[in-house]
Design a binder for these strands. Structure first.
Length: 476
DNA sequence: AGCACA
């Protein structure tokens, strides 16, 4: 019964890979603990400023023997362990791992991240979520989305106190058992809600426009004649890229999809190890045409980078204007910047500016394959006017006999031939005329290192910690 | 100088 009979601080403690450090100097920093302990092994976790005086700490080694080494070293050393000249007392902790080094989701905030397991986006109405969480206080905003973890909702309250009340209520056992709800804190403080829709609400701003393409989502899901849920159309396509042997950059996506109309925004991301891209057109028709034309086709010859297209639930992508993984071409400055940086050429001379294909082109004459065919001669719809005509001569030769170009900076085998591969023979607007050549010439620069990719980026990325940097001990 | 806290 009573294990508390023997005081824990006797010298009879069982070894633990967690050490308890006492008599630390005021506000002892994690770095100072690490300095002291890392000669004995790999430190995998710490907890600082513990105890009433905040002068205690815990350090967890990856291996028990490392902790034993440290304790026994200082047990027999003439020099005591010291931090800032102050003697530090070291003993085994009575726990075997440091828990509760708060994960980000446990850091309180005014926005909750709610994960509802075992349901799809269509199964839970945002109104129900609103109703339920309004019990704890005014709900400012809600954004819902689907992630690998399941259906999730971000719920914004006025403050962290209100949010924690909601969270704590659902941590009660009876609730945990009855519904598959997991709640953590989001790092967000203010959600960016663009529209009132079936996926997001801003209750502080009832005048916020209703997203027109989201209205049907508020109603019941569309059901086809076979009783299956019909795929909702969208102006945004979701492209899954299969067999991705070559890098598919924003520029490649832009080139391919621009053949059917103005590409407004692009976002590239990974999902379940597969690269996907969201491509936003101004309207449903353009997206439908692109989808029809590109589905199942490969960006590169040889079955590489095969595209599978579906309609996204998104209607307006929220992307960074210019990054490795995203582009917003609707921002005039950014698209200009992008065109220049991407092409690597100086801005196109005025003579090559097709007035119908100016960067701000938002028209939609190309709403069907037939009309596209009919209009083939005038030039690429919504196409960037920055094609270098000098590049066009080489492209077909490059595709068929690349080895005859010794000066070609790119590997022959990686030469993109999506002028032929990605474009359906019969229905493509790219089949003839300057467009297909343009596709090729633009694509030609892709397998190499585009100007917007930093070759050394990996080495200097934040993921790699320089030796001596504060958190470097995690890697030993 | 003697064990963290959702």
């Amino acid at each position: 019964m009573s294990t508390s009979g023997t005081p824990q601080f006797r010298y009879t403690q069982t070894p633990s890979k967690v050490l308890h450090l006492r008599n630390l100097p005021w506000e002892c920093a994690e770095e100072e603990l690490i300095e002291l302990c890392k000669p004995f092994g790999k430190i995998v976790n710490t907890k600082c400023n513990v105890g009433a005086n905040r002068n205690q700490a815990f350090v967890e080694f990856s291996d028990l023997n490392q902790a034993i080494n440290m304790v026994s070293y200082y047990a027999s050393s003439s020099e005591p362990a010291q931090v800032r000249g102050k003697t530090v007392y070291i003993q085994y902790s009575n726990r075997h791992e440091i828990v509760n080094n708060k994960s980000p989701g446990d850091v309180p905030g005014n926005v909750l991240l709610v994960t509802i397991e075992g349901v799809e986006a269509g199964d839970v109405s945002i109104d129900v979520i609103h109703l339920v969480f309004s019990a704890f206080g005014f709900v400012h905003k809600i954004a819902t989305f689907e992630k690998a973890a399941g259906f999730q909702a971000l719920i914004q309250f006025s403050d962290a106190v209100t949010a924690s009340m909601a969270r704590n209520a659902y941590l009660l056992p009876e609730n945990v058992g009855s519904c598959n709800l997991r709640i953590s804190y989001s790092a967000h403080t203010d959600l960016n809600i663009k529209f009132q829709s079936h996926r997001s609400r801003d209750y502080t701003n009832p005048l916020l426009p209703v997203n027109p393409t989201a209205i049907e989502g508020i109603m019941q899901p569309t059901v086809g004649p076979d009783g299956k849920r019909k795929e909702l159309e969208s102006n945004v396509l979701l492209a899954s890229i299969e067999n991705m042997q070559y890098a598919v950059t924003v520029d490649v996506i832009h080139t391919v999809f621009s053949a059917f109309g103005t590409v407004q925004k692009i976002a590239i991301f990974e999902k379940n190890g597969q690269t996907q891209a969201l491509v936003q057109y101004p309207d449903l028709n353009t997206a439908a045409v692109a989808r029809e034309a590109l589905e199942g086709h490969c960006i590169y010859d040889g079955g590489y980078c095969k595209l599978h297209l579906s309609y996204s639930r998104h209607t307006d992508l929220n992307v960074k204007a210019y990054s490795d993984k995203s582009r917003d071409y609707t921002i005039p400055d950014a698209s200009l910047l992008a065109a220049q940086q991407v092409s690597g050429y100086p801005p196109p001379p005025g003579a090559w500016q097709n007035p119908q294909a100016a960067p701000m082109y938002h028209g939609n004459e190309y709403s069907g394959a037939a009309s596209v065919q009919a209009q083939a001669p005038p030039g690429p719809p919504g196409q960037s006017p920055s094609w270098d005509p000098a590049m066009q001569a080489g492209i077909s030769t490059f595709g068929s006999a690349p080895s005859t170009f010794p000066g070609q900076p790119y590997q022959a085998s990686s030469g993109p031939v999506y002028a032929s591969a990605a474009m359906p023979a019969g229905s493509s607007p790219l089949q003839s005329g300057p467009t297909s050549s343009g596709m090729g010439s633009r694509g030609m620069s892709q397998p190499g290192v585009p100007p917007n990719v930093r070759p050394g980026g990996g080495a200097s990325s934040p993921g790699v910690r320089p030796p001596g940097a504060s958190p470097s001990y995690y890697g030993q």
